[in-house]
Amino acid sequence: MTKKIVILVVITMTFFSCKKEEKKVNQKLNVVTTTTMITDLVKNIGGDLITVEGLMGSGVDPHLYKASEGDVTKLVNADVIFYNGLHLEGKLVEVFEKMGSQNIKTIAVGEVLDKNTLIGSDYFASNYDPHIWFNVDNWKQVASFTMKKLKELDPKNANAFETNGKAYLDKLNLLENKLKTTIETLPENKRILVTAHDAFSYFGKEYRFNVVGLQGLSTATEAGVQDVQKLAAFIIENQVKAIFVETSVPKRTIEALQAAVRSKDHEAIIGGTLYSDALGNPGTTEGTYIGMFEYNVNTIVNALK
């Protein structure tokens, strides 16, 4: 995060502080979210009773995202900011710290999860894998937590948030059952998922997949030639038939891996494009958390069968 953006945060906060105090009692709660997954979640629970502005769009990599001047204006005008935490939005951390010092409420939804259930890492700054949404049970806990916080922030609409939240939890339960049914059609010896970066560990742990990413947990760490060669050897040894690109990671990393495998007389097709750190385009099925997860699982299972 550049010093320019941090200074801008302080200046903009001062400018808007008086305006926020003039806010009408009957005005909707103004919520700002970071990732598309959190935006979708908050919209499902808040409905038309709140206004939601998401900072990141489809295909955006939250690991590398930097706040623009326009983002800072959105943040300082927010009543509350919901973000993932666990250092997913690494370059926004300093901005969120400034928000907290100015009494703008920031909520890291990942903090609700029991640390004993999180996947650790020796190579990532937070020591925890931040891709928590790839376990539906995690996301149900996040949904319940978000519902609770919205009720606290806007008590007059608490009953509606409760109704919306419970309805969404029912949908997540249905999703969980549907995913398990689809995955059970794939023999366990074929459950090897090779992707551009290590975003699917929670998915692998829950559904018994051996997940291998070319890059680490954060896309800020680039894969080198040795990483490509090592993974190519793994693919050949395990006779992996398909590897996957991701919408938020440049395709060239997986294409380089495919070329390395092919140079050793083994063919691994690109089985499809998975949504990892961002949802699909708004208005599409993949533009929702539920639609994204179903699409990913169908793509993985069909390619590996």
Rank of each mutant, 00 (worst) to 15 (best):
N26C: 04
C18G: 02
D48R: 08
Y128N: 14
V76C: 03
E111H: 10
F134I: 03
I104V: 15
N116D: 14
E111M: 07
L86K: 13
G85C: 09
M99Q: 06
G70Q: 08
N44D: 07
I119H: 09
D137N: 08
V52F: 03
I119Q: 12
S101D: 12
A78R: 05
L41I: 04
H131A: 06
E53K: 14
Y128H: 15
Q102M: 06
S121T: 15
Q102K: 10
I50Y: 06
L64V: 14
L88K: 09
K74Y: 05
A108Q: 06
F134T: 03
K28S: 04
S101P: 00
K105E: 12
I45L: 11
G46P: 08
M99G: 06
I7C: 00
N30Y: 07
K19L: 15
H131T: 04
E21C: 03
E97F: 00
G57Y: 04
F16R: 02
V93H: 09
N26H: 11
L92A: 10
D129F: 09
N135V: 00
N30E: 10
Q27F: 00
A67M: 11
T14H: 07
Q102F: 10
M99H: 04
A108S: 13
K20W: 03
P130N: 11
V31A: 01
D129C: 12
K19A: 14
G100R: 13
V42K: 01
N30P: 00
V80T: 10
E22Q: 12
I7L: 10
G110N: 04
T39W: 00
D137M: 01
V10R: 13
G47Y: 08
G120R: 15
K66P: 01
N26R: 04
I50Q: 07
S58T: 11
V42L: 05
K74M: 02
V31D: 04
L64E: 14
I50L: 06
L118D: 08
A67K: 07
E22I: 00
T12P: 01
N26M: 03
N116I: 02
K23E: 12
L92D: 09
N44K: 15
Y123A: 14
L55P: 11
K24W: 00
F16L: 13
M99V: 04
N77P: 01
I45T: 03
L88R: 09
A125S: 15
G100C: 02
L88H: 12
G57V: 05
K28Y: 01
K23S: 10
I7T: 12
L41T: 02
F82L: 06
G120H: 15
K66M: 12
Y123G: 11
L92F: 08
L113H: 06
S58P: 13
G85L: 10
K115Q: 12
D61C: 13
Y65S: 05
A67D: 07
M99A: 09
N44T: 04
E111L: 08
N84E: 13
H87T: 12
